[in-house]
């Protein structure tokens, strides 16, 4: 994004088990490393079930954040499961000129709303499988999808995302996740 407002609000859509809540937490951890003073990450407040649509949220600001309410008008929407867009209106409330990051092998132009919003696509599922990021046979796409975010949000760097990942998962698992994030960064396509 070009000139970023002081407060950035991000909404993650995924399915229970894909790592949306972890993605939000890792993102704000990285944002703090990059000098953003105020950060918050939280799940949708309720019961979570594996496979069901879930939401997670992140706030990133230059200042301490006093907001404690939910996010209604995100600047960025991150979709961890493209299929969810058939049943959930992920664009609901997205700010004018906002950005949507989609886990998809398609290109931004393939999405009709790409003339209205900034669209970024990356095949996070493919990257997760390639890097053997599987839990119970299901690809966990949180690390690769995070790699796409520095492409659309200047105030978070790939380096900090890698550091946050390595802190969360030690040893080989951390390295695999960090590599997946880096590959995703390089493979993300953005249409502004």
């Amino acid at each position: 994004m070009g000139e970023e407002p002081s407060l950035i609000e991000i909404c993650f859509h995924g399915r229970g088990g894909q790592g949306a809540v972890t993605a939000a937490n890792l993102l704000v951890n990285a944002a703090l490393r990059d000098g953003n003073k105020g950060v918050q990450a939280f799940p949708f407040f309720g019961a979570e079930r594996r496979g069901a649509p879930v939401r997670a949220f992140a706030r990133i600001s230059d200042e301490d954040i006093n907001l404690r309410s939910e996010i209604y008008n995100p600047d960025i929407v991150v979709v961890l499961d493209e299929g969810i867009m058939k049943t959930i209106d992920v664009l609901k409330g997205l700010k004018e000129g906002g950005c949507i990051v989609i886990n998809s092998p398609k290109r931004p132009d393939d999405f009709p709303f790409s003339d209205k919003y900034t669209v970024a696509t990356v095949d996070a599922t493919g990257i997760a499988i390639r890097n053997e990021l599987l839990v119970g046979g299901i690809p966990v796409v949180n690390a690769p999808i995070l790699g796409a975010i520095p492409k659309v949000l200047d105030r978070v760097t790939l380096e900090s995302i890698r550091d946050a990942i390595m802190e969360r998962w030690s040893g080989e698992l951390g390295k695999k996740n960090a590599k997946a994030a880096e590959e995703a960064y390089n493979e993300t396509e953005v249409k502004r």
């Binding site: 939000a24 937490n25 704000v28 703090l32 105020g38 950060v39 918050q40 990450a41 939280f42 799940p43 407040f45 954040i65 404690r68």
Partner: peptide, 12 residues
């Protein structure tokens, strides 16, 4: 402190 609003929200 508030359930979920603080209990499940990450902050520095």
């Amino acid at each position: 402190y508030d359930g979920f609003i603080l209990s499940h929200t990450s902050m520095p």
